[in-house]
Write a protein that binds this DNA or RNA. Sequence first.
DNA 1: TGAAATATGATAATAATTATCATATAATAA
DNA 2: TTATTATATGATAATTATTATCATATTTCA
Lengths: 154, 154
Amino acid sequence: MRTKNIIDEFTEACREKGLSVTQQRLAVYQELSATESHPTAEEVYEKLKTQYPTLSLATVYKTLDTFEKNGFISKTRATGESARFDANRMPHHHLICRVCGKIEDLYDRALSQLALPDSVGSEFHVEEYQIDFRGLCRKCKKINDENHVKEEKV
Amino acid sequence: MRTKNIIDEFTEACREKGLSVTQQRLAVYQELSATESHPTAEEVYEKLKTQYPTLSLATVYKTLDTFEKNGFISKTRATGESARFDANRMPHHHLICRVCGKIEDLYDRALSQLALPDSVGSEFHVEEYQIDFRGLCRKCKKINDENHVKEEKV
DNA sequence: TGAAATATGATAATAATTATCATATAATAA
DNA sequence: TTATTATATGATAATTATTATCATATTTCA
């Protein structure tokens, strides 16, 4: 029943976004929903290929990319783009658009003085932290809204 | 004078960490300190190669890696490792060790209910956010502390 | 200064990701 | 349901970022 719900919700979410619902997408989404590890594309592929022998790694990559762009999943440590470096040790945060990938800096005193949870304790020695806000930049939001309207009209 | 300070501070920091102070490291560090963009390794290299014609891209990579491992700079979007994906939409944060790269999840109610700054306003539509705490895991901290003691003895 | 340690440059190798394109599947209209 | 159209897939080639290698050069420190 849990599985059923995930499938239904996923199917509905795909419809809303105008995405075809395919075996491969269902499989990848289910697999990712069933684990707490943060698997790589390769790992997802390895996990599924026994059950779906014709599945391609390229499809897994494309599927994950589609999911991420549609907000179904999140991508930790985006690759494919180059790593970016910063010598600015002033605490600052990032506004990252999930569609165009643009990164903007955000300075905010309150956000830079967060109290760290006690639970971290001696398990981890925190030196700094950074908040990544993910969503849509003004430009991509506009495009997104327009598409949504268009879909509702049809 | 500003430049002078940066050089002095950098040199001192290298000494503390037992790193050789080289032309290349100075150049890369100065370049990164002088910009607010978050350049890629390639971009740093392109910027410097006129002034330092013998500089190698491989050196820039190695230098940036060394800086990051020593906490001089930060690396946004770590690559070299695979991207990792997560279908868990429950707000959670990350504890990332800057030495061994291990990522652990952190759940904390307070950290997941942060008020967003007004300044963001209509410029960006935030859908979610994630805090990356960077520092040393227990194991790497131990090794780090031991090395420090050793260096002070010498 | 001179020996030992460390870093660099050139380049090869690797690993992750993306592009291409013919085929297959899904969505939609009749 | 079936035909048509749009979209996704699989196989594989190509690309891109990054790391490894190793001989040479530079730093460090006694």
